[in-house]
Amino acid sequence: MAKKNQNQNQTAAGTNIQKVKQQNAQANQGQYGTEYAAETDVQQVKQQNAQANKNKNQNS
């Protein structure tokens, strides 16, 4: 039988419901947290963009 969740602010998987709601509200306002930027490797993105442009120019 499934265990009842005692904390109403968390899902059965342990997700903080209030934090998710807050993040969703910020996303809807266009205010993304710095955590997204921190996960982006700028050099890698630039390299991939350059390669894509090079391939695009060769194919056209």
Rank of each mutant, 00 (worst) to 15 (best):
residue 3 K to I: 03
residue 27 A to S: 06
residue 34 T to I: 08
residue 38 A to K: 15
residue 18 Q to I: 02
residue 20 V to S: 03
residue 2 A to Q: 03
residue 2 A to L: 11
residue 56 K to Q: 09
residue 36 Y to S: 02
residue 13 A to M: 11
residue 6 Q to G: 10
residue 4 K to A: 10
residue 59 N to E: 06
residue 26 Q to F: 04
residue 53 N to I: 04
residue 13 A to N: 11
residue 15 T to G: 04
residue 14 G to A: 01
residue 4 K to E: 14
residue 25 A to L: 06
residue 21 K to P: 00
residue 18 Q to C: 11
residue 16 N to K: 13
residue 46 K to V: 03
residue 60 S to A: 09
residue 41 D to Q: 13
residue 2 A to V: 07
residue 32 Y to W: 12
residue 42 V to T: 03
residue 17 I to N: 07
residue 59 N to Y: 07
residue 48 Q to T: 10
residue 46 K to W: 02
residue 56 K to N: 05
residue 1 M to Y: 10
residue 29 Q to Y: 04
residue 58 Q to H: 04
residue 15 T to N: 09
residue 27 A to G: 05
residue 60 S to C: 05
residue 51 Q to E: 15
residue 23 Q to T: 11
residue 43 Q to Y: 09
residue 40 T to G: 08
residue 26 Q to I: 02
residue 33 G to H: 09
residue 38 A to T: 00
residue 42 V to A: 14
residue 32 Y to E: 03
residue 30 G to I: 00
residue 52 A to D: 05
residue 37 A to I: 09
residue 31 Q to K: 13
residue 4 K to Q: 12
residue 58 Q to S: 08
residue 39 E to L: 14
residue 1 M to N: 03
residue 44 Q to C: 07
residue 55 N to M: 06
residue 22 Q to W: 06
residue 7 N to D: 15
residue 34 T to Y: 06
residue 11 T to P: 02
residue 17 I to K: 14
residue 31 Q to S: 01
residue 12 A to E: 14
